[in-house]
Amino acid sequence: MKVIGAGFGRTGTASLKQALEILGYGPCYHMSEVIAQPHRVRQWLDVGEGRSAGWDTIFAGYASTLDWPAAAYWRELAEHYPDAKVVLTVRDAERWYDSVSATIFASALAERRPLPPHRRIVRKLVALRAPDFALYPRMARATVMDRVFDGRIDDRAHVLKVFERHITEVTSAIPPERLLVLDVREGWEPLCAFLGEPVPDVPFPEANERATFRRKRPRRLLRLIIKGR
């Protein structure tokens, strides 16, 4: 493990994942890996519910990690991988909240409401065909929604306070020489200088995480139902 991402989801982590892989710090572990490989859901559920924290098993084969759920365990990971550098992705707090509330939080809050009949059918099919992925809502609560936000993801003021406090905690705990606070709009220069890498002759990646989130989940559920994996 060479790079640990401490930034919350929806702070440009998808763009940074691509950037790190271009620089040779891949493969990069991201929530997208958990969604694509449902057995990882159960691994993180074990972590979130206190049964296991086998970091070397979880991250086997990966050179970097970003996004939730790993970012919720940045302290533990920074301690376990003392030679890894830490990147804290940041963005304007209000814009971040608008993004996360329209995607991750919207899905989590929907899980709290009674499901309409067609959603109940989909849920049952997923549970039968892909039992690991069916644990995703429980895993997300254990590792992110409850652990990071005390379950109060519908409280804007509280969520913004957590966001700002998180930045303070990371910058206070990680030595400056080991930490890069990065707004991905800054592009290659600060990241490459921090990692000691030459600037690539390609544009810095710009991944539209909100659009990807909206497309990916329905397609993934359909694929799981059809293929059972």
Results as ranks from 00 to 15, higher is better:
residue 140 A to W: 07
residue 46 D to R: 09
residue 199 V to N: 12
residue 129 R to P: 00
residue 50 G to I: 15
residue 113 R to W: 01
residue 42 R to P: 01
residue 3 V to I: 03
residue 103 T to G: 02
residue 65 T to R: 04
residue 66 L to D: 00
residue 45 L to I: 05
residue 107 S to A: 15
residue 175 P to C: 15
residue 174 I to W: 14
residue 10 R to I: 02
residue 209 E to R: 15
residue 216 K to E: 15
residue 39 H to D: 14
residue 176 P to M: 08
residue 132 D to A: 12
residue 4 I to L: 07
residue 203 P to S: 14
residue 87 V to P: 00
residue 221 L to A: 14
residue 68 W to P: 00
residue 43 Q to P: 00
residue 112 R to D: 11
residue 96 W to A: 14
residue 152 R to K: 02
residue 72 A to Y: 05
residue 70 A to H: 08
residue 170 V to R: 02
residue 63 A to Q: 13
residue 225 I to L: 08
residue 41 V to C: 04
residue 67 D to V: 02
residue 39 H to R: 08
residue 61 G to N: 04
residue 146 D to Y: 10
residue 151 G to F: 11
residue 162 V to G: 06
residue 222 L to G: 03
residue 185 R to N: 15
residue 102 A to T: 11
residue 4 I to Y: 10
residue 175 P to W: 11
residue 13 T to K: 09
residue 213 F to W: 08
residue 5 G to Q: 01
residue 9 G to Y: 06
residue 20 L to T: 03
residue 36 A to Y: 06
residue 96 W to S: 00
residue 34 V to M: 02
residue 143 T to L: 08
residue 13 T to L: 04
residue 128 L to E: 12
residue 48 G to R: 08
residue 200 P to Y: 06
residue 133 F to L: 09
residue 204 F to H: 05
residue 50 G to Y: 05
residue 28 C to V: 10
residue 92 D to Y: 02
residue 2 K to L: 06
residue 19 A to D: 01
residue 161 K to E: 11
residue 131 P to T: 07
residue 116 P to K: 06
residue 180 L to A: 05
residue 167 I to D: 14
residue 142 A to S: 02
residue 211 A to S: 03
residue 200 P to L: 04
residue 61 G to V: 15
residue 17 K to I: 01
residue 17 K to C: 03
residue 26 G to E: 05
residue 69 P to I: 14
residue 152 R to N: 11
residue 36 A to N: 06
residue 95 R to H: 08
residue 172 S to K: 14
residue 162 V to K: 10
residue 71 A to D: 00
residue 50 G to W: 10
residue 164 E to K: 07
residue 31 M to W: 12
residue 40 R to H: 09
residue 228 G to C: 02
residue 102 A to H: 05
residue 59 F to P: 00
residue 152 R to P: 01
residue 207 A to Y: 10
residue 164 E to R: 04
residue 184 V to D: 01
residue 220 R to L: 02
residue 190 P to V: 04
residue 48 G to I: 14
residue 97 Y to T: 03
residue 108 A to P: 00
residue 91 R to D: 04
residue 223 R to T: 09
residue 213 F to Y: 09
residue 227 K to L: 12
residue 146 D to S: 15
residue 123 R to Y: 14
residue 69 P to T: 07
residue 130 A to Q: 12
residue 123 R to D: 10
residue 186 E to D: 07
residue 69 P to G: 13
residue 174 I to R: 02
residue 186 E to H: 04
residue 152 R to D: 03
residue 109 L to C: 07
residue 25 Y to P: 03
residue 163 F to H: 13
residue 90 V to H: 01
residue 144 V to R: 00
residue 110 A to H: 12
residue 105 F to C: 01
residue 148 V to K: 03
residue 6 A to L: 07
residue 35 I to C: 01
residue 125 L to R: 13
residue 110 A to E: 14
residue 124 K to Y: 05
residue 5 G to H: 07
residue 212 T to Y: 15
residue 91 R to F: 08
residue 6 A to H: 07
residue 117 P to S: 15
residue 57 T to E: 06
residue 11 T to N: 06
